[in-house]
């Protein structure tokens, strides 16, 4: 059978698929590596849309499946005829190499606000990539602690670099397998295994629209990377940040924002505190509340980038759609 991957920029990639092979397996056998993570129909990373042809879907979580007609998960999509599948990203974003697996050691580990840790890793040299920390701002990595079977995905907060530095903001979850290890056992010098970069939550740089970045808790991490990217490139696109936390003491320290404000004079920042007293620099409310009120006063002409816990992302997207922001202007990443 013939499987055609149609990228967002309308490049058609024709590949052979055999019976019983998932669309993801067929693509990988042809040297194309669409975004994918769990490979088990659960995470939704390999979501795509069938344009034509027939298929069967293997076991999957209904929540992970795109709700629109033709929505599929490539890892569970078994073509039963010639099939054309539209990918939600462009040809240049479709990797031609499998996702790298690399080793890193913990360089620093310190609290970031009351509910998170800042984790800085140093990559070990790699045969293909050397010392480079190669990713696109907005992407994430899967981290696996030594001797543990679990791995967790965290967004990168820094910029790609040639020193091999990776910076993460990790929310401390009570009884969390990874964050528990991080809070109790991890120490500088410990080694981790990483798989990445992954994800498509990157800036649409071709868009002429303003950018609104909405982050909840550690969902601020990839937004920080995007803002740092804009700062490095002296990007003059109008940009605003709505950064929300549950409690005022969870807000990240101000020194993170100072260089961004200096490099991006157009940056408009709102800190939102959902519960309790917001403090001097923040306002009371959820990120969705703040977004709703700001959209009401400025209109729906911006691209909106949302990252945070799944419920927060859904609420923010609903508020944006309610205000008339079209789906093409919505970009999201769920933690």
């Amino acid at each position: 059978m013939n499987l055609t991957l149609l990228t967002r920029d309308e490049v058609r990639l024709e590949i052979d698929a055999t019976v019983g092979q998932s669309a993801l397996e067929a693509a990988e056998a042809a040297g194309l590596y669409p975004a994918a993570m769990c490979r088990d129909g659960q995470c939704g990373q390999c979501a795509a849309h069938v344009v034509s042809g027939t298929y069967e879907m293997g076991p999957h979580s209904p929540a992970a499946l795109p709700p629109e007609p033709g929505g599929v998960l490539l890892c569970q999509c078994l073509p039963t005829s010639d099939l054309t599948v539209a990918l939600p990203y462009g040809d240049a974003q479709l990797p031609r190499h499998s996702v790298p697996v690399r080793q890193a050691v913990i360089e620093t580990l310190r609290p970031a606000g009351a509910a998170a840790m800042s984790l800085v890793l140093r990559l070990q040299p790699d045969a293909a990539l050397g010392q480079t920390a190669d990713f696109l701002p907005g992407q994430y990595m899967e981290l696996r602690p030594p001797g543990m079977a679990i791995s967790r995905a965290y967004s990168l907060a820094n910029l790609p670099n040639w020193e091999g530095t990776l910076e993460f903001l990790i929310r401390l979850v009570p009884d969390g397998a990874f964050s528990g290890w991080l809070a109790r056992e991890a120490k500088p010098g410990d080694r981790l295994e990483l798989r990445g970069p992954l994800g498509q939550f990157t800036l649409d740089e071709a868009s002429p629209r303003a950018r609104w970045l909405v982050g909840g808790g550690c969902g601020f991490a990839p937004l920080l990377s995007l803002l740092r990217q804009m700062a490095e490139f002296q990007d003059t696109t109008p940009v605003r940040l709505i950064y929300g936390v549950n409690l005022a003491e969870e807000l990240l320290p101000n020194d993170i924002f100072t260089p961004l404000r200096e490099a991006l004079p157009q940056l408009h920042v709102t800190f939102a505190v959902w519960h309790g007293a917001p403090g001097a620099n923040a306002v009371q409310g959820s990120t969705a509340d703040i977004l709703e009120s700001q959209l009401a006063s400025t209109g729906s002409a911006a691209d909106i980038y949302v990252c945070g816990p799944p419920k927060m992302v859904e609420t923010v997207l609903a508020a944006a759609r309610q205000a008339g922001v079209p789906d093409a202007q919505l970009f999201c990443e769920k933690l």
Binding site: Q93, P95, H97, T132, D134, L136, E205, A206, F233
Partner: peptide, 18 residues
Amino acid sequence: RAAYRNRIFTAGPVGWPG
């Protein structure tokens, strides 16, 4: 492509966002 986006540099009249 993503594989070399971070290690390609432009000079003179050339440019690509990012």
